[in-house]
């Protein structure tokens, strides 16, 4: 079985901070990681490979050359081969353009099942997975928590806020995985060395142009555009009281509750 896993390299947003003076994002020194939901996707792929003999996992990422690091890590985790989809023409793509390009690349490589993470922590859109499935005209299930192979299909557990659906979905299909896919496998030294030996493969616009409409990729092919971005306005400074006795603290809180008409 041919398993394709899509991963995105993202800044570790839990470490992103604001410069208190300029009120801008400090990105310097923030390490890049494999997006956590995508890591869950890799775990899911490894689990699927264990269940279906003779499977091969191909990991694919779209991004600048720097994303090779994420692919190498995925190989070290146990993926068999890695593709970097990269071209200047792909820059500035929104989710729709990105999914269009990735769908072309996935089609070119060939697949039985595609696994993506539910969403990336930098954009949090959760769109690219379902959009890829639509471009490839295959069914998908998102928010997948568990699965098992059942003949020509997968039986997956799809999470909602208030329920689960146990769904049977036939191959070929796409799943978007949520963090929490069993144990994260830690890298072994042997795995890392093995991964270093593997050659990464590359796909650029020339490789994919038969499958792509130039008007549907990059900044030009993106329906959505960023008008502006800003860091959130700092709230006007509240009052900070310290060194109060318990009674004073209670008085202070009660004053606010009265003032705010809460009592």
């Amino acid at each position: 079985m041919k398993i394709l896993v899509c991963v995105k390299q993202v800044p570790d947003t839990s470490e992103v901070t604001l410069d208190p003076i300029t009120n801008t994002l400090i990105r310097k020194g923030i390490k890049s990681i494999i997006n956590p939901d995508d890591k869950a996707g890799i775990e899911a792929a490894l689990k699927l490979k264990d269940q279906v003999e003779g499977s091969q996992i191909t990991v694919i990422s779209m991004g600048p050359k720097q994303a090779e690091i994420a692919l190498r890590e995925a190989l070290a985790m146990g993926c068999d081969e890695g593709y970097l989809v990269s071209d200047r023409k792909f820059g500035g793509s929104d989710t729709l353009a990105t999914s269009t390009i990735l769908a072309a690349a996935l089609k070119k490589i060939g697949f039985d099942v595609i696994i993506t993470g539910r969403q990336a922590i930098d954009g949090d859109t959760a769109q690219v997975g379902p959009q890829i499935a639509e471009h490839l005209k295959i069914p998908h299930v998102s928010y997948v928590e568990e699965f098992e192979v059942d003949g020509d299909a997968l039986i997956v557990l799809r999470q909602f806020e208030d329920r689960y659906h146990k769904i049977r979905i036939k191959f070929p299909c796409l799943l978007t995985a949520i963090s929490g896919f069993g144990e994260i496998k830690y890298l072994t030294v042997a795995g890392v060395i093995e991964a270093e030996k593997k050659e990464l493969k590359y796909l650029n616009y020339e490789d994919l142009k038969d499958l792509l409409d130039e008007g549907c990729i990059g900044l030009k092919g993106s329906p959505t555009k960023v008008v502006k971005s800003y860091t959130k306005e700092q709230k006007s400074q509240g009052t900070l009281l310290k060194g109060l006795t318990t009674n004073e603290a209670v008085d202070a809180i009660m004053a606010r509750l009265k003032e705010g008409h809460i009592l």
Binding site: D122, D124, V226, K228, Y230
Partner: peptide
Amino acid sequence: PAFGGNLMAVIKCE
């Protein structure tokens, strides 16, 4: 919001 709520972006679809 983006970047875990660190950044706000205004998006249009013209």
